[in-house]
């Protein structure tokens, strides 16, 4: 198994389909009894798969749109960084694709390790004593306000 995972890592290449059409069939059949909501997702995954279709389909491989992702994540990237990220991210996303083969039908997702509940403290405001230190960390600060570029009444 270690072998398989390590080999999967080694063999993941930019030219491989990240979700093959056969994997999508597995995904669809495993979710066929689910809600319309899930079908909608399956169709979306179909679309994603088409855009990442394999060499054998002779269509152009499209990596994740790094420029758009960077815009969503509010990170400026240089053209060189976009190019580098595209290659690397595409390989990793392709490698993530192996999870589509797993039968997770009726498996509940686990959001974290099992833990005892009821540990929330009372939702009451408390005064933090060291306010000056917090203020000292703020890069642009003016008269009790955080200073940022103008966002209202712009031309």
């Amino acid at each position: 198994m270690a072998t398989r995972a390590l080999l999967a890592v080694i063999s993941a290449s930019p030219n491989r389909c990240f979700i093959s059409p056969s994997r999508i069939k597995i995904l669809q059949s495993s979710t066929s009894s689910s809600s319309v909501h899930f079908h909608r997702h399956s169709r979306k995954i179909h679309r994603i798969a088409r855009s990442y279709s394999s060499d054998s389909d002779s269509s152009v491989l499209q990596p994740p749109d790094v420029s758009r992702l960077a815009q969503t994540a509010r990170i400026s990237l240089t053209p060189a960084e976009i190019e580098e990220c595209e290659t690397k991210i595409r390989r990793v996303i392709d490698w993530f694709g192996q999870l589509q083969q797993v039968d997770v039908n009726s498996v509940e997702p686990a959001i974290r390790a099992e833990m005892d509940g009821g540990n929330l403290r009372e939702d009451a405001p408390e005064t933090f004593e060291n306010r000056d230190s917090i203020r000292a960390s703020i890069p642009s600060f003016e008269e009790a306000y955080l200073k940022v570029p103008k966002i209202l009444n712009k031309e």
Binding site: I48, Q100, V104, P109, A110, I111
Partner: peptide, 11 residues
Amino acid sequence: AYYKRAQQVRT
């Protein structure tokens, strides 16, 4: 396809 599926694998 990704996050939820990974959480199921965690189970």
